[in-house]
Design a binder for these strands. Structure first.
Length: 896
RNA sequence: UGGCUCGUGGCUCAGUUGGUUAGAGCACCACAUUGACAUUGUGGGGGUCGCCGGUUCGAAUCCGGCCGAGCCAACCA
């Protein structure tokens, strides 16, 4: 064991983490078995964008998954954590376009083919950065199965799904009003629009009647869209305007004659009660337009400028410029009645941040009505459960109001839609394989759709496309449905809902049994982490500084209720210290093994149980209790409870008490006892490390490998459970644990007297322990040596004190036993401190006594409360009386 | 506007079906340093459980109302 003493007294993660990760990978510990007799456990990693850098959200998300995977792996499951990455159409294309811009190029100049090639090159060069960062965190993914959303297999699945849905009519192409991001030059889905409250203005504009008989005033937040007005609308019951219905307006600036129509959509009380209708540029107006068969006039080009329909005066202007110009022109015509400030919400593009324009265009859609029905049912029935449950409501509400999903994007990077337009007959051929001829007219003059699919379309197939679908692979059979999906609440609709719909549609079963939804990582003040607030923390930097284990443990000890977590450096430091504590506990254990020989049966065997110290039996008992707590917690995904159980067992039981209790034995001469304690110490440490491993994989492997007796690797060793440890735990004892807990209380009482009277630790006190019953008499007698050494006493006797004069007295009550701890203070301290201490306790007890006594004199309480509660109260009151009396006595004697 | 969540010592949170004295970690204060660890040890102070009302012998816990914070969805041009 010579090398043990060379262990540094500080844990240095940087020298440890990379080494073990590499070793695990080389040994193939992360790999699953395709078929196995072990039960399967599978998690599909939400694939990060290839443009992404690991952020705190990933750190949280991945740690949860890795804890689950490592735990299940140790529990004997055939675990698969399947990693991947997402081509991230918009994000990646933007990055490459920016790169081109630096060279003075545009993607249009480059052409589609070269641009896509260039993007692949970018991906090869930079796309794996996040994977390296994930490895730093300790993610134990089966890397050989890493899948990219544009891989051949996945692309094949994408085409098959698209074609099937098209053939059954669930995918259709249509000219509809969609959300258009001018900055991206592409359609985006409803979900990608972020509504932000914006301070704008409400312009009141006169619209003269075409026959010159008067005018109406419309109120609008977007005056420039009047150029595309095709009607004016009032409420049918609005007496102010009834007579106008059916008449015509001569639209200012344009001169077009538009009709005044009536629709109940109009709110009489808002604005002027008259609404201009622009079907091509507003979703509500679009609906009204459909109801009233109005013409839609599109005013915009794809890059967000006004087109020829806006008229010569406005063509080519941006929306903002056009708005200013229109207002100016209206003012000149004296048609602007008034302008008032008005706050309303404006849709912004989630990707580029630009203002989204409702835009009429040809797009591809998934009709979700039908496929959403089974996806609702499986959640209602509990086939897939959500944790926490509250998200079921959110999910179902969205599913019940689901809109058709716009899946086409005017981008180049992604899955090009497998639809070919016949240049001769206009028929659309949709096919898994590139067709050579038109299905309808057999013309070979085909042109493939330019648009690509929404990135989320391929993501929606992820749980089965990554397992080999549409082939009937062993992997698919073994691992689908996957066990649990771990993700943030922000992508329940984007991703979870869609995986549900398509998984059920194409594989016929739910994609996952459980959806575990966690919150966001926020800063210590609870703000979102963002670059603009300058409060973003880089998990990789934290790992460099504090170690991955500390970071992981911090996150896991905070996710408790599934709410957002407030990340603080203080906590991280605290957990770095915890890792150091573990490190030193191991260092202490290992450095006390000189001359130790591993027993013949391994550390599981204890030669003679009678050699076990009370502390040994106590710690075995506590270890078993900890195992039980963890098991309960992890079976319900209560990671925080599990983390806390280990923390408190490791620090406050193993280190604070067990190692202290054991020092006299370790430094003593009784070789049999010493051997037994060393064995128990090693056994407990070994289990402690295994319990901690899923949360802190690196330090635990490092220390595990230093143990004199161990398996091949902690990562593939078994997880300690009450069941597995049955025979070992039998060496513990609940009775002895009770005894030692009483001893701990007594020691704490001595320390308490010492502390409150400010008696220096160097002063060896005498303590008289006065047991009030046979049981405690016996316990104290047997454990006196522990008390003397740990409480730092000079002398200790178990007896009735002759006099309490000038003594500090504390009554220790534990379970059904009671002990008075008496410490003569004469000549040691200023008695006033002790008087104050006791007076304080008396006051506290008296307050409690009076509360209890008034409760017990309440007849209603006596008649209605259950017997045992009343009985308990009575006993307690008696107890209070005795304790107060004895304290008063002590006070008297102290003063005398 | 609707839905959801939360409000417990300075901070972050526990508190299972109402029942002894409301817990923990961090922070704070005091004391301690030659033998695992100052990234440490020991002890201590600090809470009328957001407010009001109700149910009950008894409420942090159940019910109603109010106030405050946050999130999601929708939205009046």
């Amino acid at each position: 064991m010579a090398e043990i003493t060379q262990i540094n007294d500080r844990y240095d993660p940087s020298s440890v983490e990379v080494k073990w990760y590499k070793w695990w990978e080389e040994k193939g510990y992360f790999k699953c078995e395709e078929t196995s007799t072990k039960p399967p456990f599978c998690i599909i990693l939400p694939p990060p964008n290839i443009t992404g850098q690991l952020h705190m959200g990933h750190a949280l998300d991945h740690t949860i998954q890795d804890v689950l995977i490592r735990y299940k792996r140790m529990m004997g499951f055939n675990t698969l954590w399947l990693p991947g990455s997402d081509h991230a159409g918009i994000a990646t294309q933007s990055v490459v376009e920016k790169q081109l811009k630096k060279e003075g190029l545009t993607r249009q100049e480059l052409g589609r083919e070269s641009f896509v090639k260039r993007t692949w090159e970018w991906k090869e060069q930079y796309g794996n950065q996040i994977i390296e960062q994930m490895k730093r965190l300790g993610d134990s993914c089966d890397w050989e199965r890493h899948t990219f959303t544009l891989d051949d297999g996945v692309s094949k699945a994408v085409r098959k799904v698209f074609v099937n849905l098209y053939k059954k009519g669930s995918i259709y192409r249509g000219n509809r009003l969609i959300n258009w991001s001018p900055a991206l030059g592409s359609a985006i889905s409803d979900l990608e629009v972020e509504h932000k409250n914006t301070k704008g203005q409400l312009w009141h504009i006169k619209y003269p009647l075409a026959d010159g008989s008067g005018e109406v005033v419309v109120a609008t937040t977007r005056p420039e869209t009047m150029l595309g007005d095709t009607a004016v609308c009032v409420h049918p019951d609005d007496d102010r305007y009834k007579s106008f219905i059916g008449k015509f307006i001569e639209l200012p600036l344009v001169g077009r004659k538009i009709k005044i129509i009536a629709d109940e959509y109009v709110d009489k009380s808002f604005g002027s009660g008259v609404v201009k209708i622009t079907p091509a540029h507003d979703f509500n107006d679009y609906e009204i337009g459909k109801r009233h068969d109005l013409e839609s006039i599109n005013l915009l080009t794809r890059d967000g400028k006004l087109n020829e329909n806006a008229g010569e005066a406005y063509e080519g202007l941006t929306v903002k410029q056009a708005r200013e110009q229109v207002v100016k022109d209206l003012e000149a015509l004296e048609l602007l009645v008034k302008t008032e400030p008005h706050e309303h919400s404006v849709g912004h593009c989630g990707r580029s941040g630009c203002v989204v324009e409702p835009f009429l265009s040809e797009q591809w859609f998934v009709n979700t009505k039908e496929i959403s029905i089974p996806a609702k049912r499986v959640v209602e029935s509990g086939t897939t459960v959500f944790e926490p449950e509250k998200w079921i409501k959110t999910y179902l509400h969205w599913m019940n109001n689901i809109q058709d999903w716009c899946i086409s994007r005017q981008l180049w990077w992604g899955h090009q839609i497998p639809a070919w337009y016949c240049q001769d007959c206009e028929f659309i051929t949709v096919s898994e394989k590139d067709p050579v001829e038109c299905e309808e007219c057999k013309s070979e003059n085909l042109k493939q759709e330019d648009d690509v699919l929404d990135t989320w379309f391929s993501s929606a197939l992820w749980p089965f496309s990554t397992l080999g679908w549409p082939e009937e692979t062993e992997s698919l059979k073994t691992f689908y449905p996957t066990s649990v999906l771990v993700t943030g609440q922000d992508i329940i609709f984007f991703w979870v809902a869609r995986m549900m719909m398509l998984g059920l549609e194409f594989v016929g079963d739910v994609p996952f049994r459980t959806v575990y939804i966690h919150g966001l990582v926020r800063d210590a003040q609870g703000r979102k982490l963002s670059k603009s607030l300058n409060n973003a923390v880089d998990p990789v930097e934290l790992i460099d500084q504090y170690g991955a284990d500390a970071l992981r443990f911090t996150l896991m000890s905070q996710i408790g209720s599934g709410r957002d977590i407030k990340f603080s450096m203080q906590r991280l430091e605290g957990n770095r210290n915890f890792m150091n504590k573990i490190w030193n506990a191991a260092r202490f254990t290992l450095s006390n093994l000189e001359g130790y020989e591993v027993p013949a049966g391994g550390t599981e065997a204890i030669a003679n149980k009678s050699d076990l110290s009370y502390a040994d039996q106590w710690v075995i008992q506590k270890c078993g209790e900890c195992e039980k707590k963890i098991e309960e917690a992890l079976s319900q995904n209560r990671f925080t409870d599990a983390a806390n159980a280990i923390y408190s067992f490791a620090w406050h039981e193993f280190c604070d008490w067990y190692l202290e209790f054991s020092k006299p034995i370790l430094y003593g001469e009784n070789l049999n006892e010493k051997q037994a304690t060393r064995t128990v110490m090693l056994q407990t440490l070994n289990r402690l490390l295994r319990m901690l491993h899923p949360f802190a994989p690196f330090i635990t492997e490092e220390l595990y490998q230093k143990l004199p007796l161990k398996g091949e690797a902690i990562i593939v060793d078994s997880y300690p459970t009450v069941k597995e440890d049955k025979s070992w735990l039998e060496s513990g004892s609940a009775e002895v644990a009770f005894d030692l807990d009483l001893v701990r209380e007594v020691i704490t009482a001595v320390r308490n007297i010492r502390g409150e009277n400010r008696i220096k630790p160097g002063i060896k006190l005498k303590a008289i322990l006065d047991p009030k019953d046979d049981k405690s008499q016996k316990i104290l007698g047997e454990n006196k040596t522990y008390i003397v050494s740990i409480a730092g006493l000079g002398e200790c006797e178990v007896s009735k004190p002759e006099s309490l004069s000038q003594c500090a007295v504390t009554t220790v009550r534990f379970g059904d036993v009671e002990v008075d701890v008496v410490i003569p203070l004469s000549g040691i301290v200023d008695i006033n401190d002790e008087v104050k201490r006791i007076q304080k306790s008396v006051e506290k007890l008296e307050k409690e006594q009076s509360q209890l006594s008034s409760r017990l004199s309440n007849e209603k309480f006596l008649s209605k409360a259950p017997e045992d509660v009343v009985e308990l109260g009575r006993k307690q009151l008696e107890d209070y009386k005795i304790r107060i009396a004895s304290m008063r006595e002590a006070l008297q004697r102290l003063k005398s």
